[in-house]
Design a protein around this nucleic acid. Structure first.
Lengths: 339, 339
DNA sequence: GTGAAAGCGCTAACAA
DNA sequence: TTGTTAGCGCTTTCAC
């Protein structure tokens, strides 16, 4: 009914529990035939180490905590998978949670991670978590910000240049002849959103005669995109934008559904559309979606690497890694603008 | 540098550590002003309980383990979110991993979960894990199979009737006039795949004059779907099926890309297409996808509930919950068959 | 209502 | 090379 412990293994192998522990942790210092005997005993008993006991003793766990903004956004699932792979090859596991952009879910996970004494945390923050992270770091749990730069640069971060991405998207719309640009995104407290918006503004400002309208939504979901699209459909044609930049692909897909599938507005003829993230489905949507690609796997891998280095040496200087995004042109923005 | 313990809290509040533990676990048995003093001390120190120590003492953790087949399949991400929500409202957290249909990743997670002494595991199995699960159950860790029924019914399971789903899909194709049906799916070791295939066979057999071809692929991914689609494009038109049932939506989307976007084959005019899972993107794909919907959230919630009941009372009889899938008709199968 | 103390399973320091 | 032992932080009797 209960699991065997080192004691049981020791008894069966006729050695002390210290020796059992040694074959578990430093087999090289114990004689080959003792290793053999102990290993055999472990197999016979199907011994599985009690991680809680190990952890209590050594002071921290073998897990990394990861908090992303959304579990349904493929950008984050790719990042998560990459982080898991990197961590695994260094002997760590990762406990992944997503805040769904809710501050209380976020702090719930931080609580959990601190109770678990994880080795470090990767986080794409929603709320103002820096003070909390600072306290955790003082207690030996480092953190790396993912897809977000800390204001005061006191934490390492791995992110993509969202301002450049926003500018890239809107510049592309302008260069393909659009003049009345709308940006759809929100909530603006999310740094990624406000940065992309800022880039959009810069690009618009650099081109005289271009107007930029901001449509704020409550989340980066297909549903919110659909809602925003329905509002645009209801407008008089002359009041509609001729180019839309959506702050992520899920929003863009929602917009596409509302604009195109109700048969009202042709994409890209009447309105050109650009998304963000270049998720797997971007190329498979009703109209293949022009998008901004982020190196999601690379971000996850780099973040884990930096985190583990900081866990090893807490006095390392924080580093800010900034990757550049890339424009991927598809049908949703390909054709000429309306006459 | 290190975290405060109950000892520190006790010292600050001028009580014994036993009392601190009591306000943590049974505050009702300690006097209100002591609770107050201790709570204050905890806040002052930002005390966070050491979960490993608690767990070592009580014998098991507050976490549930969950292993799904794929992290990029929205069916599983929805199921996972639902499981997390259910678990959270019962005071549990869930550690989610995905096997990517790899046996060694699967057993890696089972190892991890057993080392962690999770309260129970939810698993959508790839390999032959039943013996392993049996051993874990003997040691007090129950398991519930998700989206899969155990052969010997010794474990509870929550699943959808995949045979019925496969039949539903193919019957729909036949009733909309198709006669040369192809089923795309694999690997066939995955029970969901073989069940859907079996349902497809039954439906075909029930309709004289209908032929059924099985195209086996190596995984349920967009990429594999694209590969299968390319092979179909290369065939002589008369050798192509006029209806395809894909074992999941990711495959169907890949097929869609290969068939439709190369401009070769019209969907649904030349080939009608039915997917499985009704993921969020099914309605947003190049041609909105007819699909079989599974109650993913319901599955996750029910599975957690049963698992927690079994954790409470190990002698409960295993239960098999079988939900029925539902056909959702969209454009990819809507029009008339070829003349 | 509160305190004292045992012990969960493990690792690591030290002794033999 | 192997054995002995202290102690990680917590919960839970059992006295008081």
């Amino acid at each position: 009914m209960v699991s065997p412990s080192v004691k049981d293994v020791a008894a069966l192998a006729r050695v002390s529990i210290g020796t059992v522990s040694n074959v578990l942790n430093r087999p090289e210092i114990v004689s080959p035939d003792t290793v053999e005997r102990v290993t055999l005993a472990m197999e016979k008993l199907s011994y599985v180490r009690n991680e809680a006991a190990r952890q209590l003793r050594v002071g921290h766990s073998n897990a990394l905590g990861l908090i992303t903004l959304s579990g349904s956004n493929p950008f984050f699932t790719e990042l998560t998978t990459a982080a898991e792979d990197s961590a695994a090859s260094a002997g760590y596991s990762v406990i992944a949670g997503n805040s769904n952009e809710k501050k209380d879910r976020e702090s719930g996970y931080l609580n959990l991670f601190e109770e678990l004494r994880v080795r470090g945390v990767l986080i794409s923050p929603v709320g103002n978590v820096v003070p909390r992270l600072r306290r955790m770091r003082q207690r030996g749990i480092p953190a790396v910000l993912v897809d977000r730069v800390s204001n005061d640069l006191s934490f390492s971060s791995v992110s993509v240049d969202d301002v450049a991405g926003g500018a890239l998207a809107v510049t592309h719309l302008i260069e393909s002849g659009r003049r009345r640009i709308a940006v759809v995104g929100g909530p603006t407290e999310i740094r990624q959103v406000s940065d992309r918006l800022q880039g959009a503004r810069q690009a618009a400002a650099a081109h005289p005669g271009v107007t930029l309208e901001v449509i704020v939504v409550n989340g980066l979901t297909v549903q919110e995109g659909r809602r925003a699209g329905e509002a645009i459909v209801e407008r008089a044609p002359s009041a509609r934008p001729d180019g839309i930049f959506a702050a992520n692909d899920l929003l863009a897909i929602g917009l596409l559904q509302a604009l195109n599938m109700q048969g009202e507005i042709a994409i890209p003829d009447e309105i050109a559309l650009v998304g963000y993230d270049d998720i797997l489905f971007a190329s498979a949507s009703v109209v293949p979606l022009t998008s901004i690609r982020q190196p999601s796997r690379l971000i996850g891998e780099t973040a884990v690497q930096i985190l583990l280095e900081e866990a090893e040496d807490p006095d390392l200087e924080p580093r800010q890694i900034l990757y550049q995004p890339e424009l991927v042109v598809r049908a949703s923005s390909a054709s000429a603008p309306p006459a």
